[in-house]
Design a protein around this nucleic acid. Sequence first.
DNA 1: GTTGCGATGTATCGGGCCGATACATCGGGA
DNA 2: TCCCGATGTATCGGCCCGATACATCGCAAC
Lengths: 214, 214
Amino acid sequence: MLELAILGLLQETPMHGYELRKELATKLGTIRAAISYGTLYPTLKRLHTAGWITESASDPSTVPPMTSKRGRVVYKITAEGKERFADLLAQAGPETYDDAGFGVHFAFFARTDQATRLRILEGRRRRIEERREGLRDVLARAGERLDAYTLELQRHGLDACEREVRWLEELITNERSGRAPATPGSFELPTTESPHRVAGDTSPQSPRPHEDRP
Amino acid sequence: MLELAILGLLQETPMHGYELRKELATKLGTIRAAISYGTLYPTLKRLHTAGWITESASDPSTVPPMTSKRGRVVYKITAEGKERFADLLAQAGPETYDDAGFGVHFAFFARTDQATRLRILEGRRRRIEERREGLRDVLARAGERLDAYTLELQRHGLDACEREVRWLEELITNERSGRAPATPGSFELPTTESPHRVAGDTSPQSPRPHEDRP
DNA sequence: GTTGCGATGTATCGGGCCGATACATCGGGA
DNA sequence: TCCCGATGTATCGGCCCGATACATCGCAAC
């Protein structure tokens, strides 16, 4: 899952680890608060070994501070990495439908073809519907076996499931009619190709994402 | 986290692994669909080594089928295990406030003292509020840097956060006024002591929980 | 009858991911 | 000057998961 996210971000622009972690935090903030370095660096090493990315010492001319010595490592996606990213984006297995997997895939929907988007949304919906049915069964059949707190937990979970199903229904409907997600304030077109650098972006080189609160 | 859940369930009644997994699925259905055996058995081994539980071959007289040969292993909590459970229930660290940790603790709130319940609910609320603020920042500051799908993901996450905060507020209010969770159809009293075997339960020995859909 | 399948049941293995930890540099304020 | 917080790279132990293997039981189809 991390692999997909990293390749996706590096496709936009090369980065070093620290930066990558922050971008991951903003892009996947809903899924996972912040990626641990204990995950990030081994994953980067794995991607490098596989040939999807290259590691290189930072170019001192473009990067202002840190007068070398123990320089930063800049990671850059390779052509094979881009292929790999496309493959991962297109395929939708069972792991694509759990919370983490779905979130990552969804975050890159702008670069996913519509058929795959629809497949993923429907798979996710089925997954959530199953969870919902399980909770309904528990609440109906085992209502008296569980204490009030456990019941409240199930009820809250059931509510979240129903809400997410509705959300997915809406997205699926929009998707079928060829519209972008229903963003009340936004009027962007369906954008079949990567719109991640929008006209009007005033910070073309250093994005400076939101602060990382530790 | 698993440790707490297992000790909690074994405190109700001794069980073997398969049964334990199903009970965990119903009790923690909102948190985690089903515990993997690759998690369950090593954890049981760990608990046994630590002395919190005992392992013993199933008594053929009480258990109907499975005429021994490769018998089931019945796990039973020890006195030390009960102490351990009480300790885990009472302490509330940072890991108590993430999704999984909070869910497990909440599921055993019926056996948690009120002060701890309040502490955990407030800790969780703070955690979610922080996540919410992070999402708000992203939506406000980086609104034009992200594509429509990513924004929609953030918006949905923000909505879930706001909803959960409201839910927690309500629980906290109830907790402070000494009431049980606001269960519209239920009239159980606060139940300061374990109410997990309610009068009127018609299946005192074999609970037969909800089916495990694979 | 026997054959085969689904539910019950125990167990291991490789691997992903996390939190804690260590270490080093840089800019700026006390 | 001196320390602190942000930046930055990296490892280690440990939890947990999915896949897999293996064995028994009850039942239904053939």
